[in-house]
Every structure is written in structure tokens, then in C-alpha cells.
Design a protein around this nucleic acid. Structure first.
Lengths: 221, 221
DNA sequence: ACCTGAACACCGTTCAAGT
DNA sequence: ACCTGAACACCGTTCAAGT
């Protein structure tokens, strides 16, 4: 039983409508679609770290075929998210016409929060790829970042947001709040924390200089 | 090469100084200590998801012995963190005497941020256990939560923090900022986000009602 | 009472063989 | 050109056999 995510756009059938639609052989195209559908179902049921073997099995496709189409998990995830990414970007341009800049921004951040929590564990994958560019998953990052930046700058121009706030911080705030939502049982915690950050981005009162010192540990490869 | 974490207390030798120190056979005790030492090294080098096999190998101990002493990864993690947890709690009682309540709180949150980033990936493990109680890793959670709550209430009593702020939200804010620090390359991002949240917790101006709707996905078991 | 390590289950990834 | 699935490497966990 897969419940539907609030931010899911009416699944208009799997469609590789990316900018790079080179022609595929008929069977390859069919397998691509089967994989997208199976992946969406598996990610929905098990989270962003669902078994790739299982996805291939659901799609009635050899595991090698999955790897041929999507050399990495992130590539598959990116493909599945394509529609949602496009929807978020479109929503941003809509909201640029909202009467209140800050409210328009808030609405968009709400939509973005829904998008990055489409699958359990997705926030983490997205945030990580957002940091280390050139990852396949970050294919839509620039578009989303640009869309968000436009809304942020509009709110800043209207004096409804501090001028020195980095638009990327605002987007990161949504990810952080979404992450909290995955960790805690309190369904309102993400909203409270995001609201607090937005107040902090708006008000000019000097915050106490609380620094957190993240550790730069060596990766395990 | 393992770098030293800023918040690491001078490693005064591995010591199971927990409240439940039932006597162990000499060899068992020795293995316990070897495992703690090896685990700390492995977690430092590879993060909180270091290979348990590798830890047992480093300790010159069978993998079964590791599981006998620490039935779960979280149990091992909790044991390794014991010293740090005690230090954080002690620091809180110290800071209850700080001249400025809000500054004392800020200093403590700084220390807490260091603690939860002792190993890469630790923030996530801690935050998750913080939500779902009774986990072994959350052995020190109550103590830390209580210590933080005292500092929060002191700041609230002094009017330096909004009265309706949940102390757990403040602690969660530190975790969220620490998580951001693990995702991004920008070393100042966690400090900026935490500062913003603290301003939001202090100021009374109604924030735009930006809600993020977390998804309650079914676990994979 | 405690230790050991083989055995099992599982997953990701590659690649030689097929069509 | 694309598909398949066996093969490999790796990891977590258990448990029968040992001391």
C-alpha cells in the first residue's frame, strides 16, 4: 500500500521528458519507463535507499539493464524526480506574481519542503548533492536554486527579508527543517524550526554569537 | 591519520564508568576496553557507520565478542560517547552560573554542537534516537535534555528567550545546524542557521506561516 | 562465562555471454 | 545496441563449537 505524497503531481505517466531525449530502441525505451515506474513505487515504499535489485525485479528487468540506464542510484533518483523538479521551478515563476513577496516566498518554501520529502531519506540525498556539485542528482539543483533566489531577492527588494541573507541559506533551511521532520515524531517541529529561521533571516537584531564547529572528517570512499 | 575533534575531552583511557559497572572477568574487561578504543578510532576515521567487522579486527577480537558486549551499533556508539555526554552535562551546570543567561545558553549549544559532530554521521544517529526513545543510544538523552532545559528556562526567566519555546526545539536546532554542517562545504553555514533559529526563538514577531509537511513513510524494517 | 570464526543472508556492482 | 544474470566483494548477524 503506497500512500500518495501531498506534493506529488498527478503522475502523468513516466516520461523521460528531459532536455536530452536521444531516441531509444523500442525495448530500451520500454525498460526505461518500467524502471522509472518501479523505482517510484520502491522509493515510496522503502525510501530513497530502496534496494536496486528489488527495483529491477519489480520492473521485470535484469539488474544490468538498470545500471545501463542509470549508472548510479542518484541518476535513477534524479530521473524519477524530474517531474517534481519542473513543477517546483514552475511554481516559483508563478509566485513571483504573488501580491506579498514574503508570503510568496513562504508558499514556495512550503512546496519545496514537500518536494524534498517525497521519499524518506530524499532530503539527505538532495542536500548532499547540493553541496558537492556535478553530481547527477543535482541536475535540477541550479534551476531550483535560481528559482528560489529570484523569490528571495524579490522579498529582499521589498524590505521583507534582510539584504545580506544568502538565498542558498534559505533553501538549506528548508532542507534542515525537512530533515528534522524525518527524525522527530512531532509533526509540527519542522514548521516551528523553519519559521524560526525565517524570522532570523528577516530580523536584524544581532543574534548571540553561537557558533557550531562542524568537523571535516575524511571520507571512507 | 586521525585528527582530533575540538570537543574531544582529553582521552583519559577507556573506562566503562557507567552507572552499571557489574564486575567483568579480566579478559572480558580487557576486550571491552580494546573494543572501545578500536571503535573510537574507527568512528573517527570512517564515521559513525564504520564497519563493525573492522572494529573487531582492530581490537584483535572475534566479531562475536563485539556483539556480546554491544548487541547493537548504537550500544557501542553510546558507550564510546559516554565521556563526552558526561562532559556536556557538567558544562551545563557550570554555565548555569554564567553572568548572561542567553550567552551561557549559547556557549552550551556551541559545546553541544561539537559533541554531536564528534564523528561524521553521528548527528543523524543521535537525532533519530532522540525521537524514538528507549533506544540504547539515547541513554544520555534525558540527561542532556534536562541540562539544556535548565539553561533554556533560565534564559526564558530572564526574558532573553520567548517563554513558549520548547527546550527540545532548541536542542533540535543544534542537531539541524550540525546536520547542515555535514552536508555543505560552507563551514559557516551551520553557525548562520543556528543563529537565525536563535533569533527566531527570541523575537516575538509573527513569522509568515510557512509550513513544511513531513511525510510519514512506512519503514522498511 | 566468555570467546571464536564459520555460516548465512543480503546488497551493490561488474562483465562475459547472449539476442 | 541492448539485455541478462552469474560472479564477485562486502557487510551485518547468528550460533555451534570451543576454553
Amino acid at each position: 500500500m503506497t500512500r500518495t505524497h501531498p506534493s506529488r503531481v498527478a503522475a502523468s505517466g513516466p516520461a523521460p521528458t528531459g532536455p536530452d531525449v536521444r531516441p531509444l530502441r523500442a525495448d530500451a525505451r520500454r525498460n526505461y519507463d518500467l524502471l522509472i515506474t518501479a523505482a517510484d513505487a520502491a522509493f515510496t515504499e522503502f525510501g530513497a535507499d530502496a534496494s536496486l535489485d528489488d527495483i529491477a525485479r519489480r520492473a521485470n528487468v535484469g539488474i544490468g539493464t538498470l545500471y545501463r540506464h542509470f549508472p548510479t542510484r542518484d541518476a535513477l533518483l534524479a530521473a524519477v524526480l524530474d517531474e517534481g523538479t519542473a513543477a517546483i521551478v514552475a511554481r516559483a515563476t508563478e509566485l513571483l506574481d504573488a501580491p506579498s513577496p514574503s508570503l510568496g516566498l513562504a508558499r514556495w518554501l512550503e512546496a519545496l519542503g514537500g518536494h524534498v520529502t517525497m521519499y524518506r531519506g530524499l532530503t539527505e540525498a538532495l542536500a548532499a548533492s547540493y553541496a558537492t556539485k556535478d553530481e547527477p542528482l543535482c541536475r535540477g539543483c541550479d534551476a531550483i536554486a535560481a528559482a528560489g533566489a529570484a523569490l528571495v531577492r524579490r522579498a529582499q527588494a521589498a524590505g521583507e527579508l534582510r539584504a545580506d541573507v544568502d538565498p542558498r541559506d534559505v533553501i538549506m533551511a528548508v532542507h534542515a527543517a525537512a530533515w528534522v521532520g524525518e527524525q522527530t515524531k512531532d509533526p509540527d517541529a519542522p514548521a516551528r524550526l523553519l519559521a524560526a529561521m525565517l524570522v532570523g533571516f528577516r530580523d536584524d537584531s544581532g543574534a548571540p554569537a553561537a557558533k557550531s564547529r562542524p568537523r571535516r572528517a575524511r571520507g571512507r570512499t
